[in-house]
Design a binder for these strands. Structure first.
Length: 938
DNA sequence: GTATACGGCTGTC
DNA sequence: GTCAGACAGATTCGG
DNA sequence: CCGAATCTGTCTGACGACAGCCGTATAC
């Protein structure tokens, strides 16, 4: 790849010789790649310094005087450690700077970076009081409601800290954690909170942020639903990291977003789920499987279970505190455990973590391990927090103590002014509405927008964080640019319930309707000059033209919808692109690099007919060789985000589409082993009849429906009701002569719909109309609820999912068809709980003989008695559900995307959808006819 | 020791 | 993929 | 005119069917 181009430098100025100021280090392709490599290296090093891969650790230790001697123990059997923990009895000596006598992995390396100063803290900080209240914040309405106690583990009332710490203090002689508590709680107002004085770092091991500190933030965050509070806590958390332990920032971010690295990085699977973890919990706590099971039914969350289970365990020895960056690198190291015996080693490590974790740490480390943090904050909350934290605690770009007031930086002085204003306002002294605060808020919002924008185009925390730490927001977009080789978040469409809704949403603005093919989304990156460093780091792949074919040597990388790297799943795609680039190489402007958005669909290589999604999924996923491809695919392109060194994201769809059609005409390689390349079928005629025809056509080719895309930016009225199209087309400045009826509530606000490519947005300028959204087209069945499982998390007190069956009229048996958990309101769940109460007469522990359910084992069986209408998208051939199996052969029929619609009071179980009907519906579907498929209706 | 069946995890929609 | 629930902010209504 | 009620946009989490992959336990 060439020099990185500032993306979206408006006006498509064709030639931009890298105009970066030399003073602003930019993240060019090369540095970026180098960066990725460095990331990887760092990760490796971290991991190697851990107990698992440890090699030269001893040596290093010896050098650095402060070492602990026991690492070796770890080296032989991790599994033993747990036991040892329990048995050792030396009393922990608090605060002695060598306080780790026991040496679970995750501890104690001397800090890699100079320790942040922390002296001040001890002066200003009053004694840490262990009860930072979750107080409603001064400038916000007091909406600090706790979550309903549906998740039973949550502290109910009172300060959680206070209680948890008290307990801790009781059970352990030395309440070391209480010393780590923030002197001001993390939900302190942003204007008041000041990491360098308000956090007691005196016990931070080596100056690194302890895991318990992070956990505190988690506790507060998960105790509230208020986004404002969440954002504030996360902001303060990141600020303390930036100011006191920047080296941990990345680890902290990954830990709170519950990821181990960028999505597109390979081999980041933990391979640990609730089962493996359950075993670890049993081992550590000594509880019986039954006891754990009971907890599980009650709590419905792995972390809560671990927390409860661990309560019963008394450790004689206080484990050394966990530290954020170590926890992270330990998790990363789990990722690398492969091969025979790896399972045991993994559980051993997990057990060590569990043993080392204290109190709330147990809950969250467990959730982290099963990749379900349930904190009410993921990516987006974190990005805003990161932006705000950078505004408030910026590191880069300024010298020590310097605080220039500029458009980004929120200085101490400004914060003080806001505080003053707020307190004055509270006393009623000022009429003016918090001007100062508004100004500062706007500053931070601007920063949020920027960070989100940059993220969407380059979703990689490592790069983002480094860039922010180095130079905050200055030229951020060019330093962390859209780049070939790094995926961008895909643009999404918003669901649309009816074809007519297109016009109420878009008026008469010109649009294109495209077939929404049923395959797998692909984001294809191609370059004739690979991004530097890409090869070493194993990203993407060079493809030489296949022997005997025309092609061009190309570097290719393919990403999935969630940005996972699936390059080696589709070599046939790479070769096709090679042929395509070769074809264009004689044109005036040959293709050098580009990013395509497309759908990859299984096809019949002979006829080119599209095949079903299920058939696509038969394709192997790893290291596919051209020789043994069994499932042929076609590439159906629908958008172009980058072309020959320039980002096209800022162009209207009309232009992007033109470029796509001009430069990327269909290609049917003569070599059948290659993928076909085509443009997605589309219809530019906006006449409602034509659109409807097209929609039906797409159904015939086994598409799910259509995507409707606005061609040019437009200002549209948000529809009042039926008022649409007819008038709203022309001048946008309708000034609304208070439209028609005064009774109409909304008088139609106007809003701008961009036709640009908006990564990571479910934009209203893309509308997806799927057949199963449509009232009269999708498949709906009438099924009998026959069993259920205990719900998890939010649904821990309900039955969820619920097993459903159809009625086999020949045998009178009820055959399981699918599970269903979507479409129920909380109200409905309550009703279900009443009717199918665990000890009531409508449930049984053992399977009623009239139910046929294969190997499925729900927690309860329902006595069949009612019929529910269930909607789904497609029928699938199922290896696990017995429905209609006798009629179809080896496999039964099940339903894709099942959801509850309503109860059919008018039907008895004999009138439920029958096995025959099911079989019929499946067969009709595979014949390819669309059409109405409604079971059980007379 | 090798071949096979199975359970668990992850990722696609 | 599906869905419902929840918060926050914008808009409208009621007095 | 202001506060309450209502609507909208956006985010979050709780789970569906299936497929392949991987490690482990079992059979030969």
């Amino acid at each position: 790849m060439k020099r990185s181009q500032p993306e979206e430098q408006q006006g498509a100025a064709p030639n931009k010789k890298s105009k970066q100021q030399s003073s602003v280090p930019t993240l060019t392709a090369s540095t970026k790649a180098a960066q990725e490599a460095a990331d990887a290296r760092l990760a490796r090093e971290l991991a190697e310094s851990e107990g698992l891969v440890l090699k030269e650790r001893k040596e290093r230790k010896r050098d650095s005087g402060s070492s602990k001697s026991r690492d070796m123990k770890l080296e032989k059997g991790n599994g033993k450690m747990v036991q040892q923990q329990d048995e050792q009895k030396p009393t922990p000596k608090l605060g002695s700077e060598d306080d780790s006598d026991d040496d679970l992995i995750i501890v104690d390396d001397p800090p890699p970076k100079p320790t942040p100063k922390k002296s001040l803290a001890s002066f200003f900080a009053p004694k840490p009081q262990p009860s930072p209240k979750l107080k409603p914040d001064p400038e916000q309405k007091p909406s600090t409601k706790r979550r309903p106690s549906a998740s039973p583990s949550k502290p109910s009332g009172g300060s959680f800290f206070a209680t948890s710490i008290k307990k801790e203090a009781k059970s352990t002689p030395v309440p070391s954690t209480s010393k780590l508590v923030a002197v001001k709680p993390l939900d302190t107002s942003l204007y008041e909170f000041n990491p360098s004085t308000d956090v007691d770092t005196s016990l931070w091991p080596g100056g690194r942020m302890p895991y318990s500190f992070l956990t505190e933030a988690f506790v507060i965050v998960s105790a509230t639903k208020s986004r404002l509070i969440i954002s504030r806590v996360l902001t303060n958390l990141l600020r303390t990291a930036i100011e006191l332990d920047p080296a941990s920032l990345q680890a902290i971010i990954y830990l709170t977003t519950n990821r181990l690295g960028p999505a597109h990085e390979k081999d980041l699977e933990l391979g640990i789920g609730s089962q493996v973890l359950g075993k670890a919990i049993r081992d550590v706590s000594g509880l019986t499987p039954a006891a754990v099971k009971a907890l599980s039914n009650k709590l419905g969350d792995a972390g809560d279970i671990a927390f409860e289970a661990k309560k019963t365990v008394r450790l004689l020895v206080q484990p050394t505190p966990l530290v954020c960056h170590k926890v992270f690198s330990t998790l990363l190291s789990l990722t690398r455990l492969k091969g025979s015996g790896s399972q045991d080693r993994k559980t051993a490590t997990v057990k060590q973590l569990l043993v080392a974790a204290k109190g709330e740490e147990v809950r969250f480390i467990t959730r982290t391990i099963v990749a379900n943090l349930r904190i009410g904050a993921v990516r987006l909350s974190l990005l805003t927090a990161l932006a705000r934290a950078t505004c408030l605690s910026r590191k880069g770009g300024v010298g020590e103590g310097e605080e220039p007031e500029d458009e980004w930086w929120v200085t101490k002085a400004e914060r003080a002014r806001v505080l003053k204003e707020l307190s004055a306002a509270r006393k009623g002294k000022i009429k003016v509405k918090e001007e100062e605060e508004r100004r500062v808020e706007q500053k931070m919002e601007k920063a949020e927008q920027l960070v989100r924008k940059v993220w969407a185009r380059h979703p990689q925390y490592g790069h983002l964080v480094d860039a922010l730490l180095a130079d905050a927001f200055i030229d951020l977009e060019t330093r962390v640019p859209l780049a070939v080789g790094t995926p961008l978040e895909p643009m999404l469409g918003s669901p649309t319930r009816a074809l007519t809704e297109i016009y109420t949403r878009l008026g008469q603005r010109p649009f294109v309707a495209e077939a929404k093919l049923d395959g797998q989304r692909g984001q294809i990156h191609v370059s004739t000059t690979a991004p530097e460093g890409a090869e070493e780091s194993g990203q993407g792949c060079w493809y030489d033209p296949l022997p005997g074919t025309e092609g061009k040597r190309l570097w290719v990388r393919v990403f999935s919808r969630h940005l996972l790297d699936m390059t080696d799943k589709y070599p046939d795609i790479a070769y096709t692109l090679s042929a395509l680039v070769h074809r264009e190489s004689t044109s005036a402007e040959p293709l050098t690099d580009f990013i395509l958005d497309c759908e990859i669909v299984a096809i019949d290589p002979a006829t080119g007919a599209l095949k079903t999604f299920q058939e696509l999924s038969y394709r192997s996923r790893k290291d596919v060789e051209m020789g043994d491809i069994k499932v042929r695919v076609g590439i159906y392109a629908f958008d172009l985000m980058y072309l020959n060194g320039e980002s096209l994201l800022g162009l209207p769809f009309r232009r992007r589409r033109e470029l796509l059609h001009e430069r990327f005409a269909p290609l049917k390689p003569s070599d059948v082993r290659l993928a076909r390349y085509d443009l997605v079928p589309s219809c530019t005629d906006n006449d409602p009849e034509k659109v409807k025809e097209f929609f039906e056509e797409t159904l015939k080719m086994k598409a799910e429906g259509i995507m409707v895309k606005l061609l040019d930016e437009a200002e549209v009225e948000v529809a009042s009701d039926e008022e649409e199209g007819s008038d709203s087309s022309g001048s946008p400045s309708t000034t609304s002569t208070s439209p028609s009826k005064p009774s109409m509530k909304r008088k139609g606000r106007r809003k701008v719909l961009p036709a640009t490519y908006e990564p990571d947005k479910r934009a209203d300028s893309w509308l997806k109309v799927k057949k199963d959204y449509l009232e009269d087209l999708g498949d709906s069945l009438d099924l009998i609820p026959i069993g259920a499982w205990h719900g998890n998390g939010r649904k821990a007190s309900w039955w969820s999912p619920i097993l459903l069956g159809c009625y086999d009229q020949d045998t009178g048996l009820i055959q399981a068809v699918c599970k269903c958990m979507s479409g129920f309101t909380d109200e409905k769940y309550k009703e279900i709980n009443v009717r199918y109460a665990l000890d009531g007469e409508n449930t049984t522990k053992i399977r009623p003989s009239e139910i046929e359910a294969g190997n499925l084992k729900p927690s309860v069986w329902f006595v069949p008695q009612e019929v529910w209408e269930i909607r789904g998208a497609d029928f699938t051939l199922s290896p696990v559900y017995p429905a209609a199996q006798s009629l179809l052969g080896e496999r039964g029929v099940s339903l894709r995307f099942p959801r509850f619609v309503k109860v059919r009071d008018d039907k008895g179980i004999e009138q439920a959808t029958s096995s025959e009907q099911l079989a019929g519906l499946y067969e009709r579907q595979s014949e390819g006819g669309g059409g109405k498929a409604r079971g059980g209706e007379e």
